[in-house]
Amino acid sequence: MSSTQALLAPSLPSQLINLLAAVMLLIAFAMLAQRRVLTLINLFAVQGLILTASTLLVAWTTSQPHLYWSALITLVLKVLVLPLILHRLIRKLNVKWDVETLIKIPTTMIVGIVLVILSFNLALPISALSGTVARGTLGIAIAIVLLAFLMMITRSKAVPQVIGFLAMENGLFFAATSATYGMPMVVELGIALDVLIGMVILGVFFFQIRERFDSLDIRHLEKLKED
């Protein structure tokens, strides 16, 4: 049976996709453990670069021309434009200091491991249904989404939360590529534009928050009344 053989000895592109997926998961963990905003942004850019590489690889292996465009959008938006905007933002806001976390970092890592186990379990039946070359990586994609979500929850400052949001989008994109060879072009373009505009609006928001509270700590927003 050819399908069994394909499972036993995966082809080289599929191995490479698996490797890239594993590295993406590793970067998601590194972001979770990172204390500095600057390094966090750089890690986000590297994650985008690896996402681009893996999308290109899937596109080349399965000859899906629209995936090349997705890869291009990822490269321009997530490796170049967004990190540049973020760098500029933190220079203007002058928030290069250490990130404050609500839970201690080792605890966060343990929770992260639990999330990874959960998402791997969750993905197994789904990827069994899918017939794509990168079906095994769906679990990793879900794990990246959940880890980014965890990062948004555990950080109290605004900038890391936004980076968490962007990393979550990376994970979603990766899930789409691995499970169904990407979303329709219209949807992808829409999401890309959304993320970009969202980033610009959030940038304005940062300034407003800081002007109002003299800090970027989101906890200030929880108070509804003035004392």
Binding site: T4, N18, I113, V116, I140
Partner: peptide, 19 residues
């Protein structure tokens, strides 16, 4: 970090490399 890496290695093996 070493422990997390090792656990990740084991999980990734279970997800990606077991047919």
């Amino acid at each position: 970090t070493a422990f997390i890496l090792a656990v990740l290695a084991m999980l990734i093996h279970l997800l990606l490399e077991t047919p």
